[in-house]
Simulated scan of single mutants.
Amino acid sequence: MPLGTLDRTPPPFFRQGTPALTKLVLCSALAVFLMAADNRLKLTQPLRAAVATALLPVQRSLMVPVNLSYTGIDYLRGLQRAISAENSVRRLMASQAERAARGDQLALENTRLRALLDLRPALQVKSISAEVMYEAADPYSRKAYIDRGATHGIVLGAPVINEAGVLGQVTRVFPLNSMVTLLTDKDAAIPVLNARSQQRSAAFGGAAGGLLELRFMAGNADVQVGDKLVTSGVDGVYPAGLAVAQISRIDRKVDSGFAHILLAPAAAIDGVRHVLVLEPLSVQLPPPPEPAPTPAKPSHRTKAGAKPSASGAAP
Rank of each mutant, 00 (worst) to 15 (best):
V230A: 11
V225G: 04
T181M: 07
L176Q: 15
R172Q: 10
Q224S: 14
V223P: 00
D227K: 01
N177C: 11
P191V: 03
R172P: 00
A207N: 07
F204E: 04
V237Q: 07
D235Q: 13
V225P: 11
T171V: 11
L176R: 09
V170F: 09
G210N: 12
A189G: 07
G209S: 02
L211Y: 15
P191W: 03
A203P: 03
R196S: 04
A218N: 11
L176V: 15
G205R: 00
A203Y: 02
R200N: 01
R215S: 12
A195P: 05
D185Q: 03
K186P: 06
V234P: 02
R200T: 07
F174C: 06
S178L: 04
A189P: 00
G206Q: 01
M179S: 08
G233H: 04
D227G: 01
R196Q: 06
V234D: 15
N194F: 01
G205H: 02
A218V: 06
R196A: 08
V230K: 01
A221C: 08
L183I: 05
F174V: 08
T231R: 00
A188P: 02
Q199R: 08
K186T: 14
D185Y: 12
R215F: 00
G206L: 02
G205Y: 05
L182E: 08
A221R: 07
K228N: 10
G219M: 14
R196W: 05
V192N: 02
G219V: 13
S232A: 14
E213V: 04
D235H: 09
L182V: 04
V180I: 12
T181I: 04
L176K: 13
P191Y: 03
L214Q: 03
P175A: 06
R200E: 02
V225L: 04
S197Q: 15
V223S: 03
P191D: 09
S197D: 06
T181W: 03
A221M: 14
L212S: 04
F174I: 00
F204N: 05
S201D: 03
V223E: 10
V170C: 08
S201M: 05
D227H: 01
R200P: 00
V180Q: 00
